[in-house]
Amino acid sequence: MPGVDAPADPRATWGLPVPGELPRTADLEPLVTRVLAPNPSGMTLDGTNTYVVGAPGSGQAVLVDPGPDDPAHLAAVETALAARDARCVAVLVTHHHGDHAEAALPWGAHFGAPVAAGDATVAGADGRVLDHGARLDLAGTTIGVVATPGHTRDHLAFRLESGAVLVGDHVLGRGTSVVTHPEGDVVAYLESLRRVHDLGPSALYCGHGPELTEDPGAVLEYYLAHRAFREHQLLTALAGGARTVEELVATVYAEVPQRLWPAATQSTRATLAKLQGEGRIETATGDAVRLA
């Protein structure tokens, strides 16, 4: 197979905050304040970003991805609301993973605010299940709902009037997102990347890591190129014969810390499912696959 070079990450030259130095609270634009949850890890980076969204002077705000149900995090969010002289009128959730959704129902009850998400379990019995294209008139502004399945099947993004898009785990401030397996879907993920790109976002406010404001379109193009590169690496490895998923991960992710290989295994399995659906690979003995 012809060689394919690894794509260059445009963020490498942007001077983004290094891990561990993301401010706990930051006003990103008049509509948005970010509050960082105290749950850093290899998967959550600095922690989960909770966004407080609302028009200045409206006296109201929406919480997007409340994150873990942590008392210190709730206190920090309440401080951010007080700084805006606003009360919470709704809780929105990008997807059902606990680091984004755990606090949704308890905080909704705490604030007396409805919960809305793409998954009925997250939204709760009295909540709202959101569909692509919905427009939410809340907190003195309008928030557009954008379906972005791929990382998970229920994943949503939220487009603000400023042109910024809150992308949850669809795009991270550092590195690349995991396509979960078996729930995630690489084909849907790629389509969702293109959908967000077509919006022409002025900024990407990620579920983890710093905000991306310098050239959001370039980041989305990098994400697409990165997935194509990983696919090429898998096919190149399989050109040498059948390989197990574990062998493929060890080859393709050799330069990635092994503590991240379980996540890499999920994305690898999701990519192999795509290739098998296209008839480009087939099952071999046991857990191995080979070129078709």
Rank of each mutant, 00 (worst) to 15 (best):
T48C: 06
E191W: 02
P210D: 03
H132T: 00
K274Q: 15
V129S: 05
H151K: 07
G277M: 13
P182S: 12
A12F: 01
V165C: 07
V18P: 01
G15D: 05
N39F: 00
F229N: 05
H73R: 09
A188R: 13
L275P: 09
N39I: 01
A263F: 14
L248V: 14
L28Q: 06
E231W: 09
L275D: 03
R11W: 00
S162P: 10
D154R: 08
T176V: 11
S162K: 08
H132D: 13
G42V: 04
R174A: 10
R227A: 10
E29A: 14
V129G: 01
D27C: 01
G279C: 05
R34F: 01
H197C: 00
F158E: 06
G144C: 03
R34P: 06
R243C: 14
G124A: 06
A218L: 10
V115N: 10
V53E: 03
H132W: 02
A86H: 08
P262R: 07
D119I: 03
A103M: 06
G277P: 14
G200L: 00
T283I: 06
V171Y: 09
R153D: 12
T283M: 12
R259V: 15
D185G: 08
D119M: 04
G207K: 11
T176N: 07
P19G: 04
D119K: 12
I281Y: 03
L138V: 02
A239M: 08
P114W: 11
H132G: 09
V32S: 03
D9A: 00
T213Y: 00
G207H: 12
Y222D: 07
P262N: 09
